[in-house]
């Protein structure tokens, strides 16, 4: 890993770590109360209230993993923490996407959903982990670089 890449990774994942922590805290608060929707960000856990606190814990842990990876980022054990944090976000976000897929296929009145309803299932607002997913993909570059 080049020095510039290391520097970038440090700053990038420090920021992402803080954001993940913030989202985790937000979801934890949301899970205690009614939850909230803010623009295209949805933290209401409307579909599965039972999952919300667990999601919050995982995001918090991922945030901490990112932050603890920043120091000496190029070292393989440190990098591994950032990779693990990303994998945890992929699991949570992957399941959020899977939940949308699962509910988009069957229709309300018909066997299969019509195109309109199908697409509507994927409309915003999105839950926090989906945003994190997008930004966590940067880690793939570092994984490929390492191997």
């Amino acid at each position: 890993m080049k020095e510039g890449e290391e520097k970038f990774g440090q700053i990038y994942f420090a920021v992402l770590g803080v954001v993940a922590l913030a989202f985790g805290v937000a979801e934890l608060i949301a899970s205690a109360g009614e939850g909230f929707t803010w623009g295209i960000l949805d933290s209401s856990g409307a579909s599965d209230p039972m999952f919300l606190p667990w999601k919050a814990i995982i995001l918090l842990a991922a945030g901490l993993f990112y932050l603890s990876s920043v120091n000496n980022f190029a070292e393989v054990h440190q990098l591994a923490k950032a990779v693990m944090a990303s994998i945890m976000i992929w699991i949570v976000a992957g399941m959020a996407i899977w939940a949308r897929i699962a509910s988009s296929i069957p229709g309300e009145e018909t066997w299969f959903n019509n195109l309109e309803g199908f697409l509507a299932s994927y409309a915003p607002p999105y839950c926090p982990e989906m945003f994190l997913l997008l930004f966590s993909l940067v880690i793939v570059y570092y994984i490929l670089k390492e191997e």
Binding site: D48, F51, I57, M84, I91, V92, M95, W98
Partner: peptide, 19 residues
């Protein structure tokens, strides 16, 4: 580090199962 990872894995397991 293993316990948070285990929570994430079980979360994924259970979410997938339900959906």
């Amino acid at each position: 580090t293993g316990i948070p990872v285990a929570i994430a894995v079980i979360y994924g397991f259970w979410s997938f199962f339900c959906d």
